[in-house]
């Protein structure tokens, strides 16, 4: 595995984060650091609060206490102006796409450019068409509406929109869920290409074991409101916490592990 721009700059810093829904404690003191240009995966069982953590990072939800610092901006008490500026520096791909049903795919992708830059419509259309091609969609798709697309195409279109403003940070919620293996592989490669090319930092929420082994530089396992372990998959493989073992024991976990061991030797080599 190659890391194009090895850097120790921290782009996301979460410390002592707690979140509560009524009586239910979702996060009980989470500490996490994400470094620049790494592909960082967030895993955990259903209800472990990974989606909530993502929502808190992208300013859709407020934690109860603790601090989140993204690109050196503290999210607590952030001003509207600063929030707007920050939002233009990241791209988010939602699990179900989050594409606007009333706009064509091309308009969806061009929307951030139209909103935040003064570029000509023709240029925006060209850039949107290129981003569309970058994510592996055919040019005809640009004229279609989200409702006409399959699930996999929606994901790609959503990724293209997330990339519209060339963000520094990319948040992906289940990028490969519901995709056929070939499309999932292509998404994998695309994410790595983007990271290598732009030095993009990618935060992924996923259950996809293949993706974890093949793509993630580091993985954080969330369980019981805490981070139970952070490291590359092979580092995590040596840990004994039950929440972590879930990803390695069991038929699926073992199969992927063997496959990964056969394909790439020790993905820890990059550090």
């Amino acid at each position: 595995m190659t890391n194009a721009d090895p850097s120790d700059t921290t782009v996301i810093e979460i410390s002592q984060l707690t979140t509560r829904f009524g009586e239910h404690v979702v996060h009980a003191g989470i500490d996490l650091q994400v470094r620049q240009a790494e592909i960082f995966a967030l895993v955990g069982g259903s209800g472990s609060g990974k989606s909530t953590l993502l929502r808190e990072m992208i300013l859709l939800q407020q934690p109860e206490s603790g601090s989140i610092k993204i690109l050196d901006v503290e999210l607590e008490n952030i001003t509207d102006v600063a929030a707007l500026a920050l939002r233009q520096r990241w791209g988010v791909m939602f699990q179900h796409g989050g594409l606007f049903g009333s706009l064509t795919i091309k308009e969806n992708i061009g929307l951030p450019l139209r909103e935040h830059t003064g570029l000509d419509d023709a240029l925006i259309d060209e850039i949107a068409a290129w981003k569309l091609a970058l994510t592996g969609l055919k040019p005809e798709v640009g004229a279609q509406y989200p409702a006409e697309l399959s699930g996999g195409m929606m994901k790609r279109a959503s990724l293209a929109r997330a990339l519209a403003l060339d963000p520094e940070l990319l948040f992906l919620d289940e990028p490969t869920a519901g995709l056929d293996p070939e499309s999932a592989d292509e998404i994998d490669q695309l994410i790595r290409k983007l990271r290598d090319l732009f030095g993009l930092t990618v935060i992924i929420i996923t259950h996809d074991l293949d993706l974890l082994w093949q793509l993630a530089d580091r993985v954080a396992v969330l369980a019981d409101g805490k981070v139970q372990g952070v490291g590359s998959m092979s580092q995590l493989a040596e840990q004994t916490h039950p929440a972590i073992r879930k990803f390695f024991d069991g038929p699926r976990g073992r199969a992927v592990q063997q496959q990964a061991a056969a394909q790439i030797h020790a993905p820890t080599g990059m550090r």
Binding site: A129, A133, L134, P139, L197
Partner: peptide
């Protein structure tokens, strides 16, 4: 330079918009 090169590969053979 790498980014420029990547874009360059695309721009030449960009299919005409339907």
């Amino acid at each position: 330079a790498r980014l420029l090169e990547l874009i360059g590969q695309e721009i030449g053979d960009q299919p005409a918009a339907p």
